[in-house]
Every structure is written in C-alpha cells, then in structure tokens.
Amino acid sequence: MKTSWKEKTINIFVIYIPLIVLVFFVVTPIFWTLSLSFKHSSDIVSEHFTILPDPFTLENYTKSWSTGRISQYFMNSAIISISAVICVTIIVILNGFALSRFRFRGKNLFMVFMLMTQMLPRIIIISPLYLLMRDLGLVDKLASCIIVEIATAIPFQTLLMKGFMSGVPKEIDEAAEIDGCTKMQTLFTVILPVIVPGILTVFSFAFINCWNEYLLPYTFLSSGSKFPLSVGLRYMITQMSIDYGGLAAGAITAIIPPLCLFGYVQRYLVSGMSAGAIKG
C-alpha cells in the first residue's frame, strides 16, 4: 500500500518528532555526564563553555580510581552484588523446582506469602531491619547488605525462575526417573542444563537490582571504606567542594556493569513484564 503525501506529513508529527524528542530526553543526561567525565577539571569550572570535552582527558578516571575511593567503592559493590546474587540464584533454583515440579500442602500459601512480601515497601521495615542488624552485630559489615538483598530478591526472581522451569516439559523428568535418577539428580543433570539462559537472566536481573541498591547500605554501613558505589557517590555530593569531573567519572563507572547486563536481559524485559515478574 502506498502512503500518501498527506499521511507522510502526519507521520512526521505524530511519530518521528515525538521519537526524536524522547531519544533526546533519554540520551542527554548520559551524554552530558560522559562529556564532563572526559573534561579537565579546569575546563569544567572555566567561563568558556563547551559541550564536548576539549582537550579530551582520562584524568578524572585515573584520579578517581587511584587516589579517590572509586576503586574501593567498586570492589564493595562487586562483593555485595556477586555474593548476594549467587545465593539468590541457588535459592531460587530450589524454589522454582519445588513450585514447578511438586504438589505439596501449603504451596499456595507460600506463593501468596511471596507476593505479599514482594509488595511490601522496604522503607516501612528499614528501621526494624537496622535494629535487627544491630542485634546480630552486623551493622557496618557488608554481610548485612548481602543477606537483606538476598531476602528482597527472592520473591520476584522465584516467579521468573518458576516460569523458565515450567517451560521444560515434564516428560523429560519422567524419562530421567525411569532411567533411575532421583529428583535432585533430575534437577541437576536434566533440567538445569536446559534452562541456562533462564538462569543467566535471573542472575542478571538480580545483579542489576543489587548493584543499584542504595537504601540498605546507606542505612547499615557507616565507614567510608565499606561503601558501595551508590552510597559512595551520594557521599561525594555532600562534600563542601564537589569534584565534578570525578563525580561524573564515578557515575559512568557505576553505570557500566548494569548497562552491560541490560543488553543481555533486554530481550526478556517485554516478555518478563507480562509475567509480572519484574520490579519497577
């Protein structure tokens, strides 16, 4: 079908211009921060304003990484996120297996309980959580963040994993059991190899959420050497004189890991969202 001249003009106004505005809105803050991060600190504060860095420098990255604390914040973020996500993935695999392959009394209760905890805003329980960590002697220890992040991640990652496991036909289990596999052997030798992409998706979603977590570490941790990137960068802007170049470089450093994983999970976003499994 040929589109008429009139329709083409309408298309420009209802499709292309809104799209360009939207892309411009999304890209501008990232682009500007990227540009700042490559500017000399003297150029950032100078009267002469340029959009692009001129001259281009890596000084902010090298300085914030070596003399600043960005490298330490990065390591803390990595330790918290990776240990939490490994535990979450294991717990969620066991959960998904139980929910997709067994009928047991209390199954529905467990599902409802998980959905309720998923809806529960953490701001409501943050002060009792802090008190609990104090009683457990975990305040100002990375472990406090790790265990609470595991708990928060379980509900929706379980729903996601259950979806992936239910996609594996039950006949495969039955065949394995006829061959003499126990239930657990079936899980590890038959089901898990099939759902590797699903496991990686759960891993990526959980990692992005843990990496971005702010409220828990901000509440539990008090010494600067323990801060993850989210808290460390927030701390940088409360200083009397803000190092803008370093802040921009730190922000870009913090964005890179979730962005890399985003590329992987993006294709599951649309389908995962319809399953109601993704947090906002």
Binding site: I208, R234, A251
Partner: peptide, 9 residues
C-alpha cells in the same frame, strides 16, 4: 537499569 542515586547524579 540505572539506579535512583545515579539518576539523581
């Protein structure tokens, strides 16, 4: 994929 703190920054 970008956190509230980073969006804020």
């Amino acid at each position: 994929a970008i956190s509230g703190v980073l969006t804020g920054i």
